[in-house]
Design a binder for these strands. Structure first.
Lengths: 366, 366
DNA sequence: ATGAAAGCGCTAACAG
DNA sequence: CTGTTAGCGCTTTCAT
């Protein structure tokens, strides 16, 4: 009962796998329909609605009723069908969350924040990944909204026309996270990337660097990166130290890419004396490059990153960066959502734009 | 219309945030009920079921009908309510996915794999994070199954009794990923962590190390880590080179923790000449520690990790590790799911256990 | 504190 | 190819 097998022709998944099979024909047949409220009601000799009330822990239920129902529930192994419940009650306890990426460790942290709040509630997360593509985001928005979720959290202010339309019409909370430089549809909570860019420009100029470069990644699909860079270069200009060199890599931000891109920039512009990176993984890669190439930091080259990712703390040298409150953005978004849900329907709720603080971490690299 | 505001009393989220508010009372009132099939049917002068068919792109629809319906749909801004559809058709196009963590970058990669396959289909992912806790997993399983998902993907073979019961009774595909050392409820797809452990034992002994240590993290809540470690130590024993020291850190695996734990082990057991780590971020931390402490690798100390995470490629030295096919596990799981969904209901489907290959990356650190 | 009736918005199963 | 008739399993509303 064993053999070899290849699966997944469609995708680039051509590794050979060992497949063990064991028949389960029996268990496949048994299609004993899942018990419903009706079954429980019949077995316990009460009405369906009473069972429903017990399941939902509605107030005012006698102990005897509850006991009868619970016994029958257990006996049948009944579990409620929330799809039916959602239709009847017109509410789903589902929170749609759309992030542009999940490889970029920034977003898992945000999701963790959201989950940490939601896990204590009845709400569940439905996830969509847009891959920094407005068109893709639109499809996901449309798809997720058709589930009639209790709310939606998505990233940034930039959406397709149709997305914006759908989101504006959506009656439940719409929370745009990560950014603060824009107008929310409903609620936004994030940091100012423009502020981040100019902060770093100020810092580098103050430290006396003259040949300042910028390295981005991911083809700069992320509007927040663009905002950061533009405000960085604008501020440099204002300060009379215009940007010397800009390099936007196509590949996703990563330590390896940071290493390569740093080497690349130094090769073409050896006079560069400071580089601001789109993300911390890039700056770490650059740091490791300098370590190997014998470039002393910050004397020969100054480095700065963005995000304040955890692993920078493990580097031999304290890396200058700007910490973003990722976990807190997730937590705050989820709490705002809950707050809205519990708010009386009558209470007037205005839209709001919440600005979270950035933390400049002056390290030893510039 | 501006002011300061504090939100989130419940959580440790005590940073001050700036809040901008602008009234939207008007848009709050408008509760113009979302249009339904009936509305579209009336406007276009056809039956509801015809509208339904057009929306679902059922075969055999005349161009005129389609046109009429599409016009009305657009005019009303109709979007289907999938909750109702799911109830009527008894199928949801929802795939439940439960992972133990999302901070551990291994799981985002798996999710990416799943998403890359699912994004081309009508299926959507509902996410649960169990935090390596069987009890929590049980709650999530129960909760997610009540949405009647089309399938469920979860991590490992170890589940609570009730979880196992619920999953066995679940009529749709149940896919257990990441591990291969166990019996699947339905389908499993993963690597053998036992094999990984003994592979590394063989390697280290072959290289002549005598004082071999092991460092784990996360309080070893992950059963796969335990399997790896046990098989590692057992194999060492067999080879006559028993483990010298074992250190299981409580904190989550991270580069910083790797640095600290390595230093800790060397302090208490300076004779240690090789360490096998639970995860690559730990080994990277250890490597950086050695770099700073002037410990030469592999002469003074040999290091080995597990997983083959991308950033090890950026290290100045090639780190010995074992690569796991994370993306492919996600892809394969999703493809198997789709395969099952498209399989005729009559086709007998057996359960299967799919073993994916590990890749031993012999580097320069041991 | 419990129940009866009605229906949420959609699709399955049959007609024609 | 299009329509009619019944529900899916639950909750709402209104009684009692």
């Amino acid at each position: 009962m064993q053999g070899f097998h290849r699966i997944g022709s469609a995708v680039n998944f051509a590794v050979a796998c060992t497949l063990f099979t064991n028949d389960r024909a029996g268990s496949q047949m048994r299609k004993l329909a899942r018990p419903t409220l009706k079954d429980v009601a019949q077995l316990s000799g009460v009405s369906e609605i009473s069972v429903s009330r017990v399941m939902r822990n509605t107030p005012n239920i006698s102990a005897t009723l509850r006991k009868k129902v619970e016994d029958a529930t257990k006996a049948l192994g009944y579990t409620p069908n929330r799809v039916a419940g959602a239709l009847a009650s017109n509410s789903t306890d589902l929170l749609a969350v759309i992030v542009p990426s999940i490889s970029n460790s920034v977003f898992p942290e945000v999701l963790d924040g959201i989950d940490s709040v939601l896990s204590r509630t009845r709400y569940r997360t439905v996830l969509g990944i847009s891959h920094y593509d407005e068109q893709r985001e639109e499809e996901i928005v449309e798809d997720l909204l058709s589930w009639n979720p209790s709310g939606i959290i998505l990233t940034g202010f930039e959406h397709s026309l149709r997305s914006s339309q759908l989101l504006s019409d959506f009656p439940n909370p719409v929370i745009e996270i990560m950014d603060a430089d824009g107008s929310p549809i409903d609620i936004s909570i994030g940091v100012s990337h423009q502020q981040a860019g100019s902060m770093m420009a100020d810092h580098l100029v103050e430290r006396g660097y003259h040949h300042i470069g910028y390295i981005g990644a991911g083809g700069e699909r992320a509007s927040r990166s663009v905002k950061r860079r533009e405000s960085f270069t604008n501020r440099l200009q204002e300060l009379g130290v215009p940007l010397t060199r800009m390099l936007i890599e196509a590949g996703d931000s990563s330590v390896v890419l940071g290493k390569e891109s740093c080497s690349r920039m130094l090769q073409s512009q050896p006079e560069t004396d400071a580089i601001f990176f789109d993300n911390d993984d890039l700056v770490v890669g650059a740091y490791l490059h300098c370590l190997q190439a014998g470039i002393s930091i910050p004397e020969n080259l100054a480095l700065a990153g963005f995000n304040g990712l955890p692993f920078i703390d493990a580097m031999p040298m304290k890396i200058t960066t700007i910490r973003t409150p990722r976990l807190n953005m997730g937590i705050a978004a989820a709490e705002l959502f809950l707050q809205r849900m519990s708010a009386s329907k009558l209470e007037p709720v205005g839209s709001s734009r919440i600005l979270m603080p950035l933390e400049f971490l002056a390290g030893e690299t510039c």
